[in-house]
C-alpha cells in the first residue's frame, strides 16, 4: 500500500520555481532513492514533503491524509521524520539531549526509545553525556539518524546520508538505512552517490531540472545504459 504520495507538485523559493509537476510515491516497507545531478531539486523535493518549503500546487498525502500546507512541527507528529543533510544534530546539546529533543512529540515513550537506540548503537550510550559537536563525522550521522528515529516513524526522509563522510564510512551508513528499513520504516532518500544509493533501494527516481525524468526498479536504473551515462557517471 502507498504510504506517501506526492501528486503533481510544483514548489520553489520566492519567485523561483524549482519543482515542476513532480509526482512520486513510496510503498510500505520500500526504500526509494532519488538521484539526479546537482541543482536538480532533489533536496527541495524532500523539504517540500516535510513542509520546510511550501508546495505551490499539487497534493502530498501520508496514508491518505493530506499533509501539504502543514508546518514541519505538525508533520512530524504524523509518523514521518526527516534527517537533513547538514546541521542535523544540535551541536551544543549532549547526545542524550539530542535524543530527548528528537522524542519531544512522544515524551511518554521517550526513555524507552532512547534505551532501544542505545542497544542498537552502543556508541551513543558511550557518548551520552558528550556534546554532539565532539562526535566524529560517522558518529554524528548515527546521532542524526537516531534523533529522527525517536518518533518511531512509518516514513523516514533522508537527505544525502553519505555526504561529507569518509569513503570507509559510506557503506556503514547504507547498512544502517537497510537496518532501519528492515525494522518497518519506509525510507525515501536523496543520494548523490547514486550507485551506492540504488544498490540498497527497491526503486529509484531520476530528477533533473526539477522534473521526474525517469522512474523504475533500482536494479533496472542501474542497468540502463543511457541513465548510466547521464547520471551514474558512466
Amino acid at each position: 500500500m502507498t504510504v506517501l504520495d506526492i501528486d503533481q507538485v510544483d514548489s520553489g523559493y520566492g519567485d523561483l520555481q524549482i519543482l515542476h509537476d513532480v509526482s512520486m510515491h513510496l510503498e510500505e516497507d520500500e526504500i526509494v532513492c532519488i538521484i539526479g545531478p546537482n541543482g536538480a531539486g532533489k533536496s527541495t523535493a524532500i523539504k517540500t514533503i516535510f513542509g520546510l518549503v511550501q508546495p505551490w500546487t499539487g497534493a502530498i498525502t501520508l496514508r491518505g491524509t493530506e499533509i501539504s500546507g502543514q508546518m514541519p512541527e505538525d508533520i512530524v507528529r504524523q509518523g514521518i521524520s526527516y534527517v537533513p543533510q547538514t546541521d542535523n544534530v544540535f551541536s551544543t546539546l549532549t547526545v542524550e539531549e539530542n535524543l530527548e529533543i528528537g522524542g519531544v512529540t512522544v515524551s511518554d515513550e521517550s526513555t524507552e526509545m532512547i534505551e532501544k537506540l542505545y542497544d542498537r548503537f552502543p556508541i551513543l550510550e558511550e557518548k551520552r553525556s558528550k556534546k554532539a559537536r565532539t562526535l566524529s563525522g560517522g558518529q554524528r550521522q548515527i546521532l542524526a539518524f537516531s534523533r529522527a528515529l525517536m518518533v518511531d516513524p512509518d516514513v523516514l526522509l533522508i537527505d544525502e546520508p553519505s555526504a561529507g563522510l569518509a569513503p570507509s564510512l559510506v557503506q556503514d551508513v547504507f547498512e544502517n538505512v537497510k537496518q532501519i528499513n528492515s525494522l518497518g520504516t519506509s525510507v525515501l532518500m536523496v543520494e548523490q552517490n547514486a550507485r551506492a544509493g540504488l544498490n540498497i533501494s527497491d526503486r529509484g527516481y531520476v530528477l533533473a531540472q526539477g522534473q521526474v525524468k525517469y522512474e523504475d526498479d533500482a536494479q533496472a536504473i542501474l542497468e540502463n545504459p543511457e541513465i548510466g551515462e547521464l547520471y551514474l557517471g558512466g
Binding site: E73, V76, D87, N88, S91, T92, I101, V104, T105, S107
Partner: peptide
C-alpha cells in the same frame, strides 16, 4: 527541564528544532 532543553535546542538550530516537533 524539558522546556529549558527545548529553548537550548531552538537557540542552537531553529530549523532542526522544528523538524523535531518543537513549536516555535
Amino acid at each position: 527541564s524539558m522546556l529549558g532543553k527545548k529553548m537550548r535546542a531552538a537557540a542552537d538550530n531553529g530549523d532542526l528544532a522544528r523538524i523535531s516537533g518543537i513549536r516555535p
